[in-house]
Design a protein around this nucleic acid. Structure first.
Lengths: 130, 130
DNA sequence: TCGATACCTGCATAGCTGTGAAGGTATACC
DNA sequence: GGTATACCTTCACAGCTATGCAGGTATCGA
């Protein structure tokens, strides 16, 4: 897979400025499928409503739709719609108990990202250069 | 800010199932602005093209548009458009050197998230439950 | 000055996304 | 059974997004 056939494995419009570097980076670059999966996960966190819902679940552990709606200050419909997206993506999981449906975070990567983000929000959201 | 006026600070449609829990979580929940900023950042990483571009820059350190296009296998226009979005959001920064414009990652949070993601991709993308 | 190169910028557009309204389903209680 | 609660789903739609095309700007070499 992916032999080092210099600059021929990439469909370049121009002759590359630094062919060696281009080839080197091409070798170690994640493939399109991995990038797509990763992007899909980030896109899931790319909505304020979903972010607040997830943080709510992160804090509470498990909560029914009704209570999540109360916490984030949104309608049940809105929360339910968001939950469907999160559930379909595998980020959360639900459990029925009587009339209520309880949701909790299921994906460990999502949990990790949320935790990390909260830490960064906690000790000053400094936007210092890398 | 945010006094504990139980269940009155949230506009609940129904009476909450667990009012105490709702109030407790409401107190510690990030506010809408923070959630919006966070979501905006995640949304920036929610596109495969941008993800691959950023990983390319993460690996190479600095690269001109031409070479990035060659690495990710996209047109210069596509890369340029993506760069504009990343630049506007503050994720990358550019530097002109003659005819070429070199880009590099500027945002430390973005860099951290990418690094973390790559690690998770590295040792098996296990989707085990949290 | 005259291309050529490297990159950028509208413009148009197909496709996606978040949101609300209306109505449906499942469970509990009388 | 009948009604209320809690949640879900379908439908519609305004707004956004990624992408390609055509043309523009900046720099270099002759």
């Amino acid at each position: 897979m992916q032999v080092s056939k210099v600059t021929s494995l990439v469909s370049c419009a121009h002759p590359a400025v630094d062919a060696a570097k281009v080839d080197a980076v091409s070798e170690s670059l994640i493939n399109v499928d991995e990038a797509t999966d990763l992007a899909e996960m980030f896109r899931l966190l790319g909505d304020p409503t979903r972010v607040r819902i997830l943080f709510t679940l992160l804090e509470a552990g498990e909560l029914c739709v009704c209570d999540v709606a109360a916490v984030v200050g949104a309608t049940e419909t809105k929360v339910s719609q968001a939950m469907r997206i999160l559930r379909t993506a595998g980020a959360v999981r639900n459990r029925r108990d009587g009339r209520n449906v309880y949701y909790r975070i299921h994906d460990s990567h999502v949990r990790l990202l949320l935790d990390l983000s909260r830490q960064h929000l906690a000790h000053g959201a400094d936007e210092g250069p890398a």
